[in-house]
Every structure is written in C-alpha cells, then in structure tokens.
C-alpha cells in the first residue's frame, strides 16, 4: 500500500514536469489582483510582448493575498529569475522588495505606485488625462460658460486630476466654475452625484445657467447625466466629461447625449511597456526615471467603438 501511495506521488511529479518550462529569460509576474479587468489587460499586454522576447513568464495570482505576494517574490528570488514584475502597492510588500534588491533582481511596477526599490513604475499620467478633458470642455464652450466640477481631493490620484482642471478653468477668463462638488462615494458615486446635480439644476432653472459638467472620474459624470435627463434638460446642450472610460461611460458616449467625452487608459500598453522596460534592464540599461507614463486617449462618439 505504501508503494502504491508513492507511485501516486511519482505520477503527480510526472504530471508537473511538462509544466516546467526551460527558457533563457525567466520573469515572474506577481499580483493579488488578476481577477480584476484592468490587471488582466496589463498581464495580457505583458505576456504578448514577452513572447517576442522569448521569455519564460510565470504569472502568479495570490488571489487577494498581499502577504503571499511577499512569499512568492522570495520564492522567485530563490529561483533566481531574471526579473520580477508586480501589480500591487509596493509599500505593502517592502519585505519582498528588499529580498529582490539584496539578490540584485530588478522589480518593475505595473501601475503599482512609486517606490525607491522599484526600477520604475509604468502607469498613466493623471495630470495629462485631466488636461485633455478640461481642454475639451473649454473648446466645446468656446471659452465661455458656467461649469460644475465633481472632484475627490481625499484620494491623491483623483486630487491630481482636479488640480489641473482648476488651473485650466482659472486660466480661461470667461469660464466660471459655479460649484465644486465632492460627492459621497460610499454608494459607488453615481447616486449621490445625481442627487447633488438635481439640487443644482433646481437652483439654476434657466436654460444656459449651466453649460458643462467636468467630473474627475466617470461615476459622477453618469450621475449628472441621469439628473439632467430626469429633469428633462437633455436638450440644453450641457456638455459632460468623465474619466477612465468605463463600459457604462462608453455606452453613454456612444448614445450621443450630453456625456460627450472620457479618457481611456491603455492597460495593454502599460503591460507591453513593462515588458520593454524589463528587456532594457536585462540588456544592462540603467532606467533613470522612477515613473514611465503610457499615453492615454480621449474617447468621444467618433472613436468609442475602436
């Protein structure tokens, strides 16, 4: 019986062995968030590019477990991989980053936040994204009109977007920001934004008293759209812009109503750029910038389907 059991295990070992690849460059991609759509695109983009470099890529999903990311980084270090790519907040995995750093193994971040122990972090530029949607509003209004802003200054990445919008609106003399609203986001951000917008519409009943809504992300833009449509003021030409181009926002833009524009991050591009950065590091290049931005795209009705 013991022998039978051992043969079972031998069979298991045989089962594993073909799964063990044997390529020249070994790269471990470690994330707790593979179940999330954004992360899946990063990883897909990375894997597609890695194929060209003929690396052996091992994607490790710790299924939400951040402590396990540290353990798996330690294992990858022991395994002597050539590089590690992460998609997780570096502040929470300092122990793992230290292990990689001690072993001289480069770690590249995919939209993970900056950290001195990372070679670099590849992400989208929130400042640039905000500049695009704000310029869109200014141009659509021909530089004149009353604007409602939806912001969220408590969350640094979103706060950065608001700062740029503030600057551009302030630099346009005939644009007046009549309200700067911070919605309650506990319900996801749509419902409270809608309620706040309804109140504003009631307070400004005349056509032309509100010309545009600038939202720092898509949910408030969608809430404002619902409020405008519910108040039957959809034909006043109020221009709404959001950011992130989530599926619901894309549907609204496609429908051709007030919601006119949003910004799409290039998730696949973040992944493929991470791969090219790894290739540069492996060829001995010293990456000097701690953050590398991947271009984002303004989404309007004309390109929403692409």
């Amino acid at each position: 019986m013991n022998r039978q059991k051992i043969s079972w295990l031998a069979a298991l070992a045989l089962l594993i062995s073909p799964l063990v690849a044997n390529a020249a460059g070994k790269v471990a991609v470690i994330t707790p968030y593979l179940a999330q759509p954004g992360t899946q695109f990063y990883v897909e983009g990375f894997e597609a590019a890695a194929k060209d470099y003929e690396w052996d890529v091992n994607v490790i999903d710790t299924q939400g477990d951040v402590a396990a990311v540290i353990s798996r980084i330690e294992d990858a270090v022991t395994q002597q991989v050539d590089a590690i790519v992460i998609n997780v907040d570096p502040a929470q995995i300092a122990a793992g980053l230290a292990a990689a750093s001690d072993a001289g193994i480069p770690v590249v971040g995919m939209d993970s936040g900056s950290d001195p122990m990372l070679v670099t972090n590849i992400t989208s530029n929130g400042y640039a994204m905000a500049a695009e949607t704000t310029s869109y509003v200014v141009n659509r209004l021909n530089g004149t009109g009353k604007v409602v802003m939806f912001v969220f200054d408590a969350f640094p990445p979103v706060q950065a977007r608001g700062v740029i919008a503030d600057a551009i609106f302030a630099n346009t003399p005939d644009i007046e920001v009549i309200e700067r609203i911070t919605p309650d986001v506990q319900d996801g951000g749509i419902a409270d934004s809608r309620a706040q917008m309804e109140a504003l519409l009631a307070a400004n009943p005349d056509e032309g008293s509100i010309n545009a809504v600038w939202a720092a992300w898509d949910q408030p833009a969608l809430g404002a759209l619902q409020a405008i449509e519910a108040a039957d003021r959809g034909d006043e030409g109020i221009v709404i812009v959001g950011m992130d181009a989530n599926p619901q926002a894309r549907d609204a833009i496609k429908a051709g109503g007030n919601f006119e524009a949003s910004m799409a991050q290039d998730f696949m591009g973040i992944g493929s750029t991470a791969a090219s950065v790894v290739a540069r590091v492996l060829s001995g290049e010293d990456i000097k910038v701690p953050v590398i931005y991947v271009p984002t795209k303004l989404i309007t009705q004309s390109n929403v389907d692409q």
Partner: peptide
C-alpha cells in the same frame, strides 16, 4: 508545495 511549485514556475492555480 507553494515554494517548490513557484520555483518550478508551475501555474499558481494548479
């Protein structure tokens, strides 16, 4: 198992 399979680059779901 976790450690060895990671080192062998075996799929984490496996």
């Amino acid at each position: 198992l976790d450690n060895g399979l990671t080192q062998l680059s075996v799929d984490s779901y496996f």
